[in-house]
Amino acid sequence: MYKRILIGGSAGSFEQVSQLLSAESLYHCPPIIFIMHLSENYDAKNLCNAFQSLVHIKCKLVQNHDWIESDTLYIADGRYHVLLDNDGQRFRLYDDEPFHYAKPSIDLLFESCCGSEAKSTLAIVLSGANSDGSTGLKKLFDAGAHCCIASPNNTPHSAMPTSALHTVPNAEVLPDEVDSQWLVKLLACDKRSTEHLHHTSKSKLSNSVHASASDIKPSNTLVGGHQ
């Protein structure tokens, strides 16, 4: 089951994210962390407010040491790099130069999530005019994350998805026309498969309870004997 959704984008990605997250039915979801390259002087509160008027989940600016919460879209400003620690549950900000001309660095966010938490991570690379995100996506993919890339055929700036696709050829390519239902369907599917897993494991658990019960029959008999 997805425990976090990481989205990286640069020029042209605002519209794509708005489209991806605009479904009314998307009000219950894992934390979504959106990293977009921004100027240091840009006040990301404006971006956060813009998203709040477009999506139906809560929008918050990333704060150092904050625990990440479900049903929330986190927006990072351009002043710090953003990483996750505590097994992908908490933000950690870094003050450093841009890496490969990019700040916040999408690679860094992705690379900070490559531990055991990668398997419950959905990572998406969207429009952008450089190659940030490719290295991080490759590491996430190798660590077992579900990795998706916007279709370069229908992306305002295709350099970033093209680079990501070149680096991670087996990642899933999003449909040319991404609509607001894509993520809703993916999460519903994820929920159903998780419920199925829960169901299966419950059956297994109940079988094992039966097995245990039969195993302890002699004790019951003993207890019965006392009666």
Binding site: L83, D96, E111, S112
Partner: peptide, 12 residues
Amino acid sequence: YALPVLQKRIQR
């Protein structure tokens, strides 16, 4: 420091 940051600095 977080390892990914140190890795990037070492690379640089």
